[in-house]
Design a protein around this nucleic acid. Sequence first.
DNA 1: TCATTAATGCTCAGAACGAGCATATCGAGG
DNA 2: CCTCGATATGCTCGTTCTGAGCATTAATGA
Lengths: 309, 309
Amino acid sequence: MVTRIPAPALRAELIAVLVAVTDGEPQVLTIRDGSLLPSGPFASADRSLQASLRAWVEQQTGHPLGYVEQLYTFADRDRSADDTQRRVISISYLGLTRQALAAGGHAASWRSWYRYFPWEDWRDGAPAMIGKLIAPRLRAWAAAAGTPALKRERLQRVRVTFGCTDVPWNEDMVLQRYELLFEAGLVPEAAGAPGTGLPGAHMLYDHRRILATGIARLRAKIKYRPVVFELMPESFTLLQLQRAVEALAGQLLHKQNFRRLIDSQDLVEETGELATETGGRPAKLFRFRQQVLIERAIAGSKLPLARSA
Amino acid sequence: MVTRIPAPALRAELIAVLVAVTDGEPQVLTIRDGSLLPSGPFASADRSLQASLRAWVEQQTGHPLGYVEQLYTFADRDRSADDTQRRVISISYLGLTRQALAAGGHAASWRSWYRYFPWEDWRDGAPAMIGKLIAPRLRAWAAAAGTPALKRERLQRVRVTFGCTDVPWNEDMVLQRYELLFEAGLVPEAAGAPGTGLPGAHMLYDHRRILATGIARLRAKIKYRPVVFELMPESFTLLQLQRAVEALAGQLLHKQNFRRLIDSQDLVEETGELATETGGRPAKLFRFRQQVLIERAIAGSKLPLARSA
DNA sequence: TCATTAATGCTCAGAACGAGCATATCGAGG
DNA sequence: CCTCGATATGCTCGTTCTGAGCATTAATGA
């Protein structure tokens, strides 16, 4: 069972989905004009994977990473083909950071993640493109299935992932939706499908899939772990906090319920100061109670979803 | 940013946490007299990681893997030290299988996972060892802290992870508990801590930690995904299903509420037959409605926890 | 027949949640 | 000064979810 045959040589690379929220937009760090996620070799020196990622990101972007979480590991044939098809193990991470700075070094830049997944942004209601473009094409793809059984299954999947009819929209299924589009040949990344004019920028290799994985993970996580605060400045108003959550979830929340939930969980405390920026009545400023991270490793910053504002 | 420096050679290994439930006991596949999880090299051939794992497990154990999910990837110095400290990337997986068979090949054997984590089994109430052995030692460790602040933080962590006093027991924190014991030097795996007589079998390297990760993941998962069924035979009674969930969660459930939940979710359908084995009134047999996996990728087989039977 | 073991049906109270109404406070513009 | 626009904040209501317990039914075996 423990076969200690020396396996063929591999190399490992780290791929990062770095997220920030600025001005109510969820941003992701990209390179090469937005066509790639930042990635680097695993510096075998003596660091762990995570430390290696941290060091490398901080060196590149110039500011510290808050929360870091492993996303997924996969192994493909080496894409750079520098060798004779050496295997590369890609280990992807999700990282949250407080501010989208100028992004130090080279050609790195922050982009709204809805640039890559415009259909995921429901903050202004259901995006028209779903009903007008995506759904028809997906149905056409389903209709083109070989057998009736396969056709039914495809339709089912379209219904479940893209909702719209009887099934409600589920903001967590980012990856499933992307994979469905991929399978249906509706994204340029799919082999033999030269970009069928669907809105949304694509990426090279499978980087858009990795981004989808990161978004999905983050959207799921904010519901039961207080990770949003990793993306907030030191002090903030409850509305800013709500806007950040909404940006990530791609959905608007019911303001009063959001507040009820936040303070029923003792997640924040008043700083005593007020913010007097935006038109209306000044809002109290809050800060995250770091304590809760120790008090309960569970926490749970669930977010109350609503249909409209 | 995309530095294409050929990284030093590595090797990759797959480590599996294979779980089955037999006779109401959660079992995990081990080798070497229970001291290791099964692991194998990543066959670089042309398979993906997951396919590689599947093939290798099925070849070794002789029966198919149901559900497979990646756990975690980490990189340590090569433990086997076959080379000059070549790095090894360990990719761990959680796999669910239907029956704990004789476990084909070599010295593989199934063991109850509570053999390694006896304090995690609360089906007969709070294990006495927690109050009598674990808690006192952890408190002693906390008391030995350098500064008062550190001491308070340690006590806090003990309270949160092991519950008992005001904080209720949380069955998901398997990993946190193990790591706490590790940090406190109460498990033989910790360097310089030659087994301080705590109950629970240990494993070599970090395999017990990996097992803890797998258990934690599975305990969390059964609450929102219908994965229990991967562990059940074709048809089963509701009580058998409940016992399986209880075995995994390490907690007893309220029978009526469990049933209410199960059928409110349309997870199962009657086969029409009855089971007439155990003493009492014969129970209806059910089977899992495979349909739900397509109907809603969400599903959610939450489990209602209760204090007692 | 009766004790035992389960399966099953039903109720109830409290918590959680979605949704909406109403009021309070600010700045800016007439 | 007063009103409007914009936001903060307080409170209520009905529904659903959930934990917990009571009661009844249906089989087996001594």
